[in-house]
Nucleic acid binder design. Structure first.
Length: 633
RNA sequence: GCCGAAAUAGCUCAAUCUGGUAGAGCAACUGACUUGUAAUCAGUAGGUUACGGGUUCAAUUCCUGUUUUCGGCACCA
């Protein structure tokens, strides 16, 4: 057989050799370094037998796929260790995830606690150091069912496998696990790992099923990578917006209103800056702005379909014996505004924006700081147009999103969510057309995207914008949804060029998604050190000596205030170092110290947050610099 | 909502295991010091230990219910 290697070379080998044999034939050191291989781009074990011509790529520690194999095998090692401590343990699934792996297990009556994780780690280390061979075995479905008969979860998994699928199991030491693989050749590779946390998780992700214990962990090939990752986790903890929100006095939560955040003066400045930026950008883009009521009669929600489909998330109340609902979305109100007037095709695309406060009854366990709340402000807009305007409008929205996210140095990727398999309304041909329109808009701009089959809303397909922050986490923020449902339900019309009434097409879109969540993301993204235009306090003025320098400080504060710069003075009876330190811990972008030299001239000495360097410039230059810096859109 | 953990001064934490009505640092307040780039010193005050019920001579501590928070799951902007 002919084996083609990654460098393009082709060599002849005897049929039926394992990959390990072939690696050995090339060089013993290469074999020793190899932990798996890719045959025709499919990842396999080292003992995979090659029977025909194929392309072959050996996977070593340096290969991008290697870490997945390592983590997968570490998950097995975790299970092996748990099994050796709790022989009665039953196992669910143990997959790799973006930054590690987990394993779901059922320990019967035993409740696993965090304090036991080190013991399990110890056992894992012990087992790993035994250098157990990890061996693959192919079974028939009957054999597999027989072998795993004492483990109901594995039996369920096996039973659900299609007959065409090859069933394999991996054995290391005394532990055998049903698994597709591939795995490391032996446990000796597993040295740098950590068990991170544990939590309950429903069997097969279904809340109707039993809850298993899930243990999370991660693994790397080197101690240094592991250390770096643990440091990243620490850094994320330090940046937690709930912690920073408290330290920087941005917002608060009270047990009198779970999920209903309170905005403090500093947080209000952030909000207002963000909102006024949003208004400026949208006015430039030709949006009209409206505001619709918080509460509307139940009948409206019946028309929109929310009463039937979204009832459990809605808060209701009674007014004059009539049932009302607090809006969970802005669209129905927007429909009423549209219907107030007759519309011509000449008005299209009609772009109507609203920063709308919506309330949703979220499950108590879902609440999380500003990331998941029960009332939040959607930066919503509805765009009404004709069908052939879709591509152009979507493209112009993507350009807008692009610009706005770039202001915050947030990168993103796009996911196209298509028609759900079961719960959807309308004609499949319309869906196909809508999906194609969204896709072709992206193609026309050379934007890459991932397709998320079946994940669209029930009324239409959507583009989701997944932002990646400075800590490498992904957040769903922006969304563009093509809706063919509401215009129908609300009987929206426009008059076309022949004077006939037609049904418009509508886009729902949000850029930040939720102002609250977006601020939470920004807090963590910037670690609380906001760019000057967003910073609640932009400049701190600190006199060296209160007696001698207060007047000069007062003068400067007044100048800055007149220039619309958010400035605070620190006239407390404390040492200079103390005030400097506080200005730094509060992450204020600029601190100015006023002493003899500054008082005697029109100069300021400033220090930028996080920098040691002191810069001396004239007051007018300083004002100009700040004004230039905060000029966003 | 589900599984698990937790709640002590404004904040960060101790005392809880082994029951005997709570301590520290920071912040606040008072006074002294009068300062050139990350914490000056001394003093004062601050607590129905989340809330309710139970066990006990005695509960922050043990049991129990509720609320909230945290880690996940499910759900999701």
């Amino acid at each position: 057989m002919k084996i083609k290697f990654i460098d393009g070379s082709v060599r002849e080998f005897q049929n039926g050799m394992t990959i390990e044999d072939i690696a050995n034939a090339i060089s013993i050191s290469l074999r020793k370094k190899s932990i798996g291989a890719k045959v025709n781009d499919k990842i396999v074990d080292l003992d995979f037998v090659l029977a025909e011509d194929a392309s072959l790529e050996l996977i070593t520690e340096e290969s991008p796929d290697a870490i997945e194999i390592l983590r997968h095998s570490t998950a097995h090692l975790l299970a092996e260790a748990v099994k050796s401590i709790y022989p009665e343990a039953k196992f669910g699934v143990g997959p790799i995830i973006e930054e590690g792996f987990y394993y779901d297990m059922d320990l019967g009556d035993h409740v696993l606690t965090e304090s036991e994780l080190p013991d399990i780690e110890k056992m894992m280390n012990k087992l790993a150091s035994q250098n157990q061979k990890i061996e693959r075995e192919v079974m028939s479905k009957e054999e597999a069912l027989e072998f795993f008969k004492s483990d109901p979860y594995k039996v369920e998994l096996i039973s659900d496998l299609p007959d065409s699928e090859e069933i394999s199991a991996y054995t290391q030491g005394l532990f055998t696990d049903l698994c597709r693989g591939p795995h490391l050749p032996s446990t000796k590779w597993i040295r740098h790992f950590k068990l991170l946390s544990l939590a309950g998780a429903y069997w097969r992700g279904d809340s109707k099923n039993k809850q298993l214990t899930r243990v999370y962990g991660t693994a790397f090939f080197t101690q240094e990578e592991l250390k770096n990752h643990l440091e990243l986790l620490e850094e994320r903890k330090k940046r937690d917006h709930r912690k920073l929100g408290k330290e920087l006095d941005l917002f608060m939560l009270s047990e009198y209103g779970p999920g209903f955040p309170f905005w403090l003066p500093n947080g209000m400045i952030l909000r207002r800056e963000l909102e006024s930026f949003w208004y400026r950008v949208h006015l430039k883009e030709g949006y009209k702005l409206i505001q619709t009521p918080i509460m509307l009669n139940k009948d409206l929600w019946v028309v929109s379909g929310h009463w039937q489909n979204y009832r459990e998330n809605m808060y209701t109340s009674e007014i004059d014996d009539m049932e009302f609902a607090i809006k969970p979305m802005n669209c129905p109100g927007g429909m009423l505004v549209y219907k107030r007037d007759l519309h011509s095709y000449k008005d299209f695309p009609l772009k109507v924006g609203e920063l709308g406060l919506v309330h949703r009854h979220e499950a108590s366990g879902a609440l999380n700081g500003l990331f998941r709340v029960r009332n939040f402000t959607q930066d919503d807009a509805h765009i009404f147009m004709t069908e052939d305007q879709i591509v152009e409008e979507v493209a112009s929205l993507v350009r807008l999103f692009d610009y706005v996210y770039s202001v915050f140095d947030l990168s993103y990727h796009i996911e196209l969510s298509t028609r759900p398999l079961e719960k959807y309304i309308g004609e499949i041909s319309t869906w196909d057309k809508a999906e194609a329109a969204l896709a072709s808009a992206l193609q026309s701009m050379n934007k890459d995207y991932i397709v998320n089959p079946g994940d669209g809303a029930f009324y239409g397909p959507k583009l989701d914008f997944k932002l990646r922050d400075s800590m490498n986490r992904i957040w769903q923020c922006g969304t563009i949804q093509l809706d063919m449902n509401l215009p129908e339900r609300f009987d929206l019309t426009y008059v076309d060029h022949l004077g006939e009434k037609k049904r418009p097409v509508m886009l729902h879109r949000a850029l930040f998604g939720s102002i609250e969540r977006f601020i939470g993301i920004l807090i963590e993204h910037y670690a609380g050190a906001f760019p000057t235009w967003l910073a609640p306090v932009q400049v701190k003025v600190i006199p060296v000596n209160l007696e001698y320098h207060k007047q000069a400080s007062d003068r400067l504060v007044q100048i800055l205030r007149d220039a619309n710069i958010r400035v605070e003075e620190d006239y407390r009876d404390e040492k200079l170092g103390y005030k400097i330190r506080e200005a730094q811990t509060k992450k204020i972008p600029y601190q100015i110290v006023i002493g003899d030299e500054e008082a005697a001239s029109d100069m300021v000495t400033y220090r930028r947050y996080g920098e040691k360097e002191q810069v001396k410039i004239s007051v007018s230059e300083f004002v100009e610099m700040i004004q230039k810096e905060v000029k966003i859109a």
